Amino acid sequence: MFAPDHGFRVRRLYKLILRVHRGLPAELRILGDNYARDEFKRHKNCNSDEACVFLNEWTNYAINLAKQMKPLQQAKKKTVGEYLDPTLLDYMTEDQLIQLYQLHKAALGNDGPPDSTIDQQKK
């Protein structure tokens, strides 16, 4: 099913993500750490195909975030992250869309627009 070093690779990737999160502002770090921990727990017993996709996506995330955390990049751009390609929404399950929306709401915190405003923006 999995290579003998699979568990080691997953733990190493998880630790790398937490290390990269150290460069984020405090509130983003907490949000990112909690989200990563939950996702890694949820996918602990997934099949090998899902594990391959999961690890590739999280590896890409870690690489992209590490590039953005470089001091020179932070000096040029005052932002972290990138926009989600809207075409990816077509491939998401309903549960994934709900989770994405909840993450969106958590990222906005109390300062975000009310739900009705977001619903109107979607139309």
Rank of each mutant, 00 (worst) to 15 (best):
I118V: 09
E50A: 08
L24K: 00
L16K: 13
H43T: 14
A107M: 13
A3M: 09
D90G: 01
I63C: 01
D5F: 15
L28R: 01
G81C: 09
R9C: 02
C52I: 06
L89C: 11
I63Q: 03
E39I: 09
Q74R: 07
F2H: 12
A62M: 00
V10D: 06
R9T: 03
R12N: 00
D33A: 08
K122L: 15
A51L: 15
K122P: 01
H43F: 05
F54H: 03
F54V: 03
E50H: 12
D111Q: 10
L72E: 14
E94V: 06
K77N: 06
V53N: 05
A62P: 05
D85K: 08
K78E: 07
H6L: 05
L103N: 09
H43W: 10
R22H: 05
E94T: 09
L18Y: 08
A51S: 10
P71F: 04
A107G: 04
Q99N: 11
L31Q: 02
A3K: 07
D95S: 08
R19V: 04
G32L: 13
P114L: 13
L65N: 03
P25C: 05
L31C: 04
Y61F: 07
I118Y: 11
R9N: 08
A36G: 01
G81T: 02
N64A: 15
F2W: 12
D111K: 10
Q102F: 08
D85Q: 03
K15D: 13
T117E: 15
L31I: 02
Y83F: 07
F54E: 02
N60R: 14
A26H: 08
R12G: 04
L103Q: 11
E82L: 10
K67T: 05
V53L: 12
L108M: 10
F54D: 01
Q102W: 06
A106H: 10
